[in-house]
Design a protein around this nucleic acid. Sequence first.
RNA 1: GCGGGCGUGAUGGAAUGGUAGACAUAUCGGACUUAAAAUCCGAAGGGCUGAUGCCCGUGUGGGUUCGAGUCCCACCGCCCGCACCA
Length: 856
Amino acid sequence: MATYTPSEIEARWQEAWDKADVFKATRTADKPKYYVLEMFPYPSGRIHMGHVRNYTMGDVIARYKMSTGHNVLHPMGWDAFGMPAENAAMASGGHPKDWTYGNIADMRSQMKPLGLSIDWSREFATCDPEYYGQQQALFLDMLEAGLVYRKNAQVNWDPVDMTVLANEQVIDGKGWRSGAEVERRELTQWFFKISDMAGELKSALDGLDNWPAKVRLMQENWIGESRGIEITFHRTDGNGTIQCYSTRPDTMRGASFIAIAPDHPVAQTLEADRPDLAAFIDECRKMDTTEAAMEKAEKKGVDTGIRVKHPIYDDVELPVWIGNFVLMDYGTGAVFGCPAHDQRDLDFAQKYGLFVQNAFFMPGDDTPVTTEALVPAKTEKVVYIDHFTGIAEATSQHGIDATIDWFEDKGLGTGQTQYRLRDWGLSRQRYWGCPIPVVYCDDCGVVPEKKENLPIALPYENGNEPIDFSVPGNPLDRHPTWRDCACPACGKPAKRETDTMDTFVDSSWYYARFTAPQAQSPTDMAEADYWMNVDQYIGGIEHAILHLLYSRFFARAMHITGHLPKSASEPFDALFTQGMVTHAIYKRDDPQTGRPIYYYPEQVSLRDGKAFLTEDGTEVDIVPSAKMSKSKNNVVDPLNIISNYGADTARWFVLSDSPPERDVEWTASGAEAAYKHLSRVWSICDRIAAMNPDAAGEGDEELLRAMHACIHDVTMGIESFGFNAAIAKLYGFTATLQKSKAGHAAQREAIITLAQLMAPMTPHLSEDIWAHQGGTGLIIHAPWPRADDAMLKSDTVTLPIQINGKRRGEINVPADMDKAEVEKTAMATDAVQRALNGGQPKKVIVVPGRIVNVVV
RNA sequence: GCGGGCGUGAUGGAAUGGUAGACAUAUCGGACUUAAAAUCCGAAGGGCUGAUGCCCGUGUGGGUUCGAGUCCCACCGCCCGCACCA
């Protein structure tokens, strides 16, 4: 043993793990199972520090659970369908399949040196026909179970490229390639009936105790349960009614207009005869379809000329407007506007000269609303007038509840629980996705493909048929033969669906597939029953809503279709959302153009907290803690770190400096420090190994006490995702061991325990120390150290003494001293005597083992 | 716009409502060295004081409490998501 050489150590132990096949997961009854899963990556081609952090966290849990006697499943795969592959094909020729599998091979080889405890025998990519074929089977089962249906929906349409665009491809309302103004276009598309489960998906959130509260709250708000009422408005022209959904029927007195969605049937019937309406509707169709854009856009409308009767006041007529802010998907696609109690409605009313009328007032203030809407909190008391006087005298919430009943009693409306959650449109007009396995037959209509014909493979799979990416649009549409097939029902020539599935479908059930990746059906129930649920799921907060909600829906759908047990309806028992890895940006404004120039970390030298170009010494600006981004040149390649310092250093650092749920800033000095620390541990091991085995020393007990405290703290840290705190304790204990003059036996016990406690984070170094200290077998198989309670307790405690809540002194007392005695001791101290100045304290609070506070 | 989160030394951060700043970086001092690097030892929130000590201090302003970084209210700033990016 000489110096710490991670490259040699890490290769050696990875080989040893491979040889012993230690990470292969097999169903067995003699150990409790533990399934740990990190959100699988998209194969972009390069792993980045965010991946390293994510997988290292999962690895820490997996290895810790192995050493606590669990049968651990820790798989890895690839979320491999998606637009970037098609974009690459369009940009530089080639085929998405080659690009994707090439990237997977690259990324796998970049991940292996990290020494992750992954069962690679279960690896799959979602673009493997073996995977998406089972996904098609699942789709057919869901179709049969009534969980899938077709309806019209809008897409972003690029009129120049003649293709559907993803939201991401729409930039300022224009197509990203053509620059043409994007339109909305209606297509018939497939939908999952997730809204049927809205209530269940919401109420089941309560049981997810080991999910972050913020994620549960975000999902709850996303599902958006609201109690309201559907009210019928009668048209004065006698041409039927308009149904409005409202969560605020208590504001009905102040209703001054009806607003309907541009694609509301009433609006569409008027379009032909009214060029002004048609033009407006057309303008609405050009609007960005994202919710953020809709909300931010100026609220505009056009009067249709239609009038409806106010449901309560016979003499009041309300104009019906088309509003660009009304969504057809939510409620009935029509709302009534009450300007007095809604700022958006007030702005709209003022813009178009509509009247403003209060429905209620705040107690003691009956000033009518003019420029600012009166929007009370639901718990605030309000005073209703007219029809609602007296029925709703408590709070605003009472008013809403009471008026819903009032309208129902009068037969004017129907109470309804409405969800914001919309059905999940899964059709994508793209090539690189899972084909939707249905066939269109002139005679039989829409026919599901037969299961024995699955997988319906992408054309490339059937023998290198050329796919043309030189023009935009879906290559499946223009493929010469792929669409042609026999109708599964009648056998006559028919055409395949050319839409593929949203890639979110792929990631909504992969966790279940990992339990039996080679099964000839979507899952193997025996395996699923054993391995599900995922005990710990780890990934980015950016997936807090869609991916996790879709997965929860799919787990339920898979139960309904017989592919998962009911107990797996909530697939992820515990969820952890980790933060990003950030890095400072080094930049300087170009003196000529004024545009910023970004420099790579390697081009910069740091001195006294300032950054200088290594080349010529020019000072550059430092922007701290920015998301790593290729365009800002602030990306650190994990492979460079591994080749310079080793995987253990990279793993140690990404866990060390920040709490895992928060962002961590990558710094060269931090990585250096991690490396130095591991070297230090290594040299301590070296020193102890060189000691005389019989050598006695001083402070054995202190060292062992510190060791047991460290076992306790690190165990707690790992169990509670406090990896940074656990690492801080390991630093502390390492320093103690380094300075220790204890005998060989105690020091050897300490270094072995230290290696074990570090093993989840730095598995290679730990194996090596274990071997050098004569441990038997592999450290990964050694049981986790246990803290001895007797060694954690100490005889005396130091209690701080506070005077009026400010620390003024301390006392050392026996740990078991009773309260009265502690108080007496505290009162006798100089600090307290000085503060009392001969008087008596007003109050003395003694918290045993914690603190004494004297109030004077 | 809506929803969610975060804000503590020069920096990353620690702190079951109970000694604010653990641990690490950067900085400074010391040992070793011809010198430097590496390594080891030590100092360090700000202000006043010779020291013991005192005052101030967790984005801002209020509140609850014997006691608030932590809980509540309002505000400011930054970050994430918003349904066809993965």
